[in-house]
């Protein structure tokens, strides 16, 4: 086995320091600034699996875009292994919302893309590709084009493509949102196995509380307006976990319930504790801000 496909590779810790991002909105000639992310602080240990949950539009994709290096933050910085990130690089693999496979490339050629960028010699590529295509269970489909695959299979290709160039960090943006429930469970189990095998640091964004609790060592609950860390919660459920096993676990149920409550609070919905803090005018302000968008 060559070095590039060794079982456990080096991993990296991530530090997000006071990240802030805003978008300029142009509405009928008027410019306004929309703050999507503010004072976002998070430390992720090497090899840790961190899931981020938050309501739609709270800034999860914005955050991943920054961590991937595709977008420059307005404020703050990202450190990977203590070094400031200045742009995208092969130390991070980004699996985006939607599969973003190259439709003119076969499965094998898609997986090979990062290796080409990395400059891996041509004769070493086939073995690496075969290894990762096998890892995601797509052996035998190497020569198919993406449009000849099901949604779940495409998602697997996207994962294999991100794994193949051996990044230390995987950034995943709602990767399983578009597949059916059964396929999702399979993919979740497979992802946990791959993570256990490769030991990569994972930053996983999802809408689904169940998914976050199932997969992660730690769940970050985001608050809205502006997007920020509302609270983080360590998940102490024993590993290995499986989607099916968690369904019948009482502890799992309890934790998801807790995350759900945190999510409600983070959005500023009225719960007994927050009622005194939120006055009617605050709510009106929030609503009008929403309407003007």
């Amino acid at each position: 086995m060559s070095q590039a496909v060794s079982a456990v590779s080096a991993t990296s810790g991530i530090e997000l320091r006071d990240l802030g991002q805003s978008y300029i909105l142009r509405d009928a000639g008027k410019k306004s600034e929309f703050v999507a992310l503010a004072h976002f602080n998070l430390q992720i240990k090497a090899g840790e699996f961190v899931a981020i949950v938050g309501p739609s539009g709270c800034g999860k994709s914005t955050l991943l875009d920054i961590v991937s290096g595709l977008a420059k933050p307005k404020q703050g910085e990202i450190l990977i292994d203590g070094r400031t990130v200045s742009g995208p690089d092969l130390d991070r693999g980004f699996i985006m919302q939607g599969y973003a496979l190259f439709p003119w490339r076969t499965v094998r050629k898609n997986v090979e893309y990062g290796l080409e960028v990395k400059g891996v010699p041509k004769r070493e590529r086939p073995e690496i590709c075969r290894h990762f295509i096998h890892m995601v269970g797509l052996s035998g489909f190497e020569n198919r084009y993406p449009n000849q695959l099901s949604g779940g299979m495409r998602q697997r290709v996207a994962i294999a493509r991100a794994l193949a160039f051996d990044p230390k960090i995987l950034l995943m943006d709602e990767p399983f949102a578009a597949v059916d429930a059964q396929t999702r469970e399979t993919l979740q189990d497979e992802l946990m196995q791959i993570w256990a095998k490769t030991g990569k640091t994972v930053l996983f964004v999802t809408h689904s509380i169940d998914e976050a609790v199932l997969l992660a060592d730690r769940v970050v609950v985001m608050g809205t307006r502006p997007g920020r860390v509302y609270q983080t919660l360590a998940i102490d459920l024993p590993r290995p976990r499986t989607a099916a096993g968690m369904r019948v676990s009482a502890e799992f149920g309890w934790i998801t319930r807790k995350v759900w409550e945190l999510l409600q609070e983070g959005q500023g919905y009225m719960t007994p504790e927050t009622t005194p803090k939120t006055s009617v005018s605050d709510v009106a302000e929030q609503i009008s801000a929403q309407v003007s968008l």
Binding site: S68, G69, L70, G87, P88, D89, L90, R92, G93, F94, M96, G98, A100, L101, F102, Y113, G114, V117, F165
Partner: peptide, 12 residues
């Protein structure tokens, strides 16, 4: 597709 450009860019 901007997503494809993003995917390629994300690999540097």
């Amino acid at each position: 597709d901007p997503q494809l450009i993003k995917a390629a860019r994300s690999m540097g």
